[in-house]
Design a protein around this nucleic acid. Structure first.
Lengths: 346, 346
DNA sequence: CTGAAAGCGCTTACAG
DNA sequence: CTGAAAGCGCTTACAG
C-alpha cells in the first residue's frame, strides 16, 4: 500500500476529494460537523497531508530559507532562534544552511533554497559577498532580507543594529576613561558591521583627541581563537599595549581576555577591554565584559517581520529596520585606571 | 510571464522535454555535447530547476529535518553544523527546528517535517519525550535517528557519546583528587544523558568509597543561568560546600564558575569544578575548565551517516554509533588540594 | 456541499 | 536521442 491520499480519506468519509481538501484548509464552506468527522477519520487512518503536492499546485512551499555564517557564534545562534520563532507563527518551516563565511558555500545554499522554491530567504551575507553573489535571489524573484551585514551595491530589505551608533556609544564610554591610546582589533575585514563600528568609534575618539593605534586594522575570525591570535601577535609579543582594547565582537573578546589572563596584565585594571553584541556570555566572562548590545532577538524578530511583509507584497519599496544599540558597562572597563606603567611586560 | 519550465528550455534548444530532463539529472543517455549546450541555454535563460515538482514525481524531497532543543548551547550548535556538513555532501538541504525542550513544540516540528515529506529526520529529543511523542515519525515511515539522548521504550537508530563511560572517566579523575565529598548538579532531570553521566560517576565514586552529596539530584536548565541559580540556592546560601562540583554540562559549569567568582572561594583551589562536553568555551573559562569531551562534531557526522544508511535501506536493523568520550584536564581541577577548611563562607 | 476536470512542473517508461 | 502519455497528490474554479 502506498501512502494515503486525500482520495482515500474522501472514500472513507463518503465525501468528494474536493470537500476533504476544503476541510484540510479549514474552509468556511464546510460545516463544522463535517470537519470534525473528517479530521477524526484522518487521525484514525494516519493520513498525513502532503504539503509538497499542495505546494506544487499553489506555487508556495511554506518554507523559508535562513543562511547564516556560523551558529557557533552565540549572536548568530540567538538570531537563528528568534527568526525561527517569528516564522513558525506564520506557519513556515525553516530551511537552514551555514555558509562558514565562504561565498562559494553561500552560493550553493542560495541555489538549493531557490530550487526548493523557498517562499523567502533571510541571509546574513558571508563577509566579502559581492552584489553578484546574491543576484540569484533577485533574478529568481525570491523575496529576501539581509541581516546584520549589508552588501555594497545591493539593494534589498535589511535589518540589523545601528553599528555606527554602536561604535559611537563605545567611543563615548571610552573617552570617559581618558585613555592615551585605543586599539580596535579582530573580526573579518570585509564585514560592513566591522567598518561601521570602527567608523563610529573613530569619529568620537578623534573629536575628543584620543589616538587610535595603527593596529586598528588587524583582523581575525570572529571567534575566541581569532581574538587570541590577534592578541598574541600584536600586543603581547611586541611588548606594547594600548590602554583600551576594543574588539569587533564578544566572540573575539573572549579570546582577548583569555590571552590577557595568561599575561601579567589584568583586564579591567591594567587594560580596559570592551566589545560589541552583549551576548549572554558577556556577563560570564572574567572580568565581566563591557559590551554594546546589538540585540540578536530583536534583529531576528524584525527580520521575520520584514520577510513576511515582503512575501505579502513583493512590490513594496525596500525597507530597513534598524535596531538601537545600548551600552552595557561591566568590570572589564569599570575598574580602569589610566595611570599605569606603559610597558607591557613585567 | 510565469517561471521558466523545462518545456521552455526544451523549445529554446530544439529538444524534447524528456531530453532536457535527462540533462538535468546528468544521464549517460545524453551526449556530453548536448549537455553542455543545454546547460548554457539554461544559464542564459535563468532557468531554475523546480525541485518541488520533481519531488512530487520521485517521492523524495531531498530535504532532511533536524530538530534540536536549543542552538544557544554551543554543543548543539556544533552538532547542527556537523550534521549539515554531512548531509550537504549527499545533496540534502536541512529543515531545522528548535524544540526549546518542549514536547509540544517538538510535536509541531515533527508534524511539519513529515508534511514537508522530509526524506529523513535527525532529532535530539526534548527532555521528557515519551515514545508516543515520536510515534508520528514511525507511523509515517520517515527514516530517523536519535542523537545525544535516547527515549525509553523507543527503538530507533541512535548516536551519541557513551555517557556512562564519560561519567566513569570523570569519576576516575575525581577519585585521584581524594575529595571528601562530591556533588553532581544541573541539567534537565529527565535527560537520559544526565542519568547516564551520573550513573557512571556514582559507580566509580562508590567503589572508591567517596560520598556523593544528597544534593546530587538538583536539576536546572542546561545554561549558565541555570548553573548560577542552582549554585546560589544549594551551596552559597547554606554555607556548605562539597570538595568537588561536577556539573551536567559545560553550559551549566559556566554559571557555576561565575557564582564562585562572586564568592570568596576559588575554583581550582578551594573547590574543584568539572563538567561534560568540552565545547570550545571550556578552555576559555577562568579557570580553564576540566571537562569530559563528548565530541559534537563526531556525533553529528555519524548521525548524518546513520541517517543516509537508513534512507538507503529502510529495512536494515536499528544500529547505534557510540562515540568514546575523553577526559580533558585543566586548571579547574588541576590545582585542587583536599586539605582546606571545610566551612564555605569566609 | 458534489463531481468531473484541468493543471502545477517535473519523471518515467515506451515505442520508434 | 524523440514524442506522446501517464502520473505524483494536491487545489481550484465551475456547474449543479
Amino acid at each position: 500500500m502506498g501512502r494515503l491520499t486525500l482520495k482515500d480519506v474522501a472514500e472513507a468519509c463518503g465525501l468528494s476529494r474536493a470537500a476533504v481538501s476544503l476541510v484540510v484548509r479549514d474552509s468556511p464552506r464546510v460545516s463544522e460537523q463535517t470537519k470534525v468527522r473528517v479530521r477524526q477519520v484522518m487521525a484514525e487512518m494516519g493520513y498525513v497531508y502532503d504539503r509538497a503536492a499542495a505546494n506544487l499546485r499553489t506555487r508556495r512551499s511554506m518554507a523559508v530559507g535562513l543562511i547564516v555564517t556560523n551558529v557557533r557564534n552565540p549572536y548568530f545562534a540567538e538570531l537563528s532562534m528568534a527568526i525561527e520563532q517569528g516564522l513558525q507563527g506564520a506557519g513556515y518551516t525553516l530551511l537552514q544552511g551555514y555558509s562558514y563565511d565562504e561565498p562559494d558555500k553561500q552560493r550553493q545554499l542560495i541555489s538549493a533554497m531557490v530550487e526548493h522554491r523557498a517562499d523567502g530567504v533571510i541571509i546574513l551575507p558571508a563577509a566579502g559577498s559581492s552584489a553578484a553573489s546574491l543576484q540569484m535571489l533577485k533574478s529568481s524573484g525570491t523575496p529576501h532580507v539581509l541581516i546584520a551585514r549589508q552588501v555594497k551595491g545591493y539593494d534589498a530589505d535589511y535589518t540589523g543594529a545601528d553599528n555606527v551608533r554602536a561604535g559611537e556609544l563605545m567611543g563615548e564610554h571610552i573617552v570617559g576613561l581618558k585613555p592615551r591610546s585605543v586599539a580596535f582589533i579582530g573580526g573579518p575585514m570585509s564585514s560592513t558591521a566591522r567598518k561601521d563600528r570602527y567608523r563610529g568609534l573613530a569619529k568620537v575618539l578623534q573629536q575628543a583627541g584620543v589616538a587610535i593605534s595603527k593596529q586598528a586594522q588587524h583582523t581575525s575570525e570572529s571567534t575566541p581563537s581569532g581574538g587570541e591570535q590577534v592578541m598574541r601577535s600584536l600586543f603581547l609579543e611586541n611588548g606594547q599595549r594600548p590602554d583600551v582594547i576594543v574588539t569587533y565582537s564578544d566572540a573575539v573578546a573572549v579570546g582577548v581576555l583569555h590571552a590577557l589572563r595568561d599575561s601579567s596584565f589584568r583586564a579591567g585594571r591594567d587594560v580596559a577591554v570592551a566589545s560589541f553584541d552583549d551576548v549572554a556570555d558577556a556577563r560570564y566572562q572574567e572580568p565581566p565584559l563591557t559590551s554594546v548590545a546589538t540585540f540578536a532577538d530583536e534583529v531576528g524578530g524584525r527580520a521575520a517581520q520584514l520577510l513576511l511583509a515582503r512575501i505579502g507584497d513583493p512590490d513594496r519599496p525596500f525597507g530597513s529596520l534598524i535596531v538601537n544599540p545600548e551600552l552595557q558597562v561591566r568590570q572589564s572597563t569599570a575598574l580602569f585606571q589610566a595611570e599605569v606603567p606603559s610597558d607591557w611586560r613585567r
